[in-house]
């Protein structure tokens, strides 16, 4: 057979293409599916939510706050400017600014109400996060943070209308009373917030604040399950939410 320059180039080009595609196919073949499962004891729900009954809160009690901040290695910097808080007391007038009026009893205005991240259905913090470090878990609605991805831009701090996000302006480790090995600490330049005890739910435990409350003022459960304790409370009581007019659709309900 007479080989022309034209056929030679054709064959050379085709073989080069063949050699070039082999690594691509190899790389594709190597991708293995992550072999991972949920723990059998894990608690699951379609939509986790919390109901708070402030009437049951005894004044001065901080059991839920202390339990949460202990298990999550939340630092105490000792000054309100740098304060890190996952769950805290807010005066009624600040927690529910829309409910204030000229004739409200002075003692109600200052009455402390337990507040935390509302795990909104339409969370502004998720929308503004440039790295998707904050995301909403579709399976159960928890608004979560991936601290590995947080770059400390604080858009979420500005975006959250509930003040539920705190920035670590300093290395938090020296300011943690007793570090718990079950949960990582954070590092300087990372924002943090309540995670509805996602790490405890994965191991079959209810949130730390719910278990710590002796008065059972905090009720946790699945909103999609009509038999859950949260749904039962919502059926029997009139409840309000913090700043629902903003359209964030918060999922922490307050019995009034």
């Amino acid at each position: 057979m007479k080989s022309t320059r034209r056929t030679f180039l054709k064959i050379a080009g085709l073989s080069l293409l063949g050699v070039g595609t082999k690594p691509v196919f190899d790389a594709l073949a190597e991708v293995e599916v992550a072999k991972a499962l949920k723990a059998p004891e894990a608690l699951g729900a379609k939509r986790w939510a919390m109901a708070v009954n402030p009437k049951k809160c005894s004044s001065g009690c901080k059991d839920c706050i202390e339990a949460c901040h202990r298990v999550h290695n939340v630092p105490d910097f000792g000054n309100p400017k740098d304060e890190i808080k996952w769950i805290w007391n807010e005066p009624f007038k600040d927690a529910f600014p829309g409910q204030e009026h000229a004739y409200i009893e002075e003692s109600f205005k200052e009455k402390p109400v337990i507040v935390l991240c509302n795990h909104c259905d339409n969370p502004p913090c998720v929308r503004v996060c440039p790295t998707k470090a904050t995301f909403r878990r579709k399976e159960d609605g928890i608004v979560m943070m991936d601290y590995h991805r947080c770059i400390g831009c604080r858009f979420c701090v500005a975006g959250c209308p509930y003040g539920a996000r705190s920035m670590n302006y300093r290395d938090p480790r020296p300011f943690i009373k007793a570090i718990q090995p079950d949960f990582p600490t954070r590092t300087k330049g990372v924002v943090e917030k309540c995670n509805f005890c996602e790490e405890r739910l994965a191991r079959g435990l209810l949130p730390a604040c719910v278990l710590a409350c002796k008065e059972k003022a905090l009720i946790f459960g699945d909103l999609e399950n009509p038999k859950s304790p949260v749904r039962e409370l919502l059926r029997k009581n009139f409840t309000i939410r913090r700043k629902p007019e903003l359209g964030t659709n918060p999922q922490v309900y307050y019995i009034v």
Binding site: A34, A36, K38, E139, E198
Partner: peptide
Amino acid sequence: QVVVREGESLYV
């Protein structure tokens, strides 16, 4: 990735 973002805790 799996633990934080996909909510699974056991590795097989």
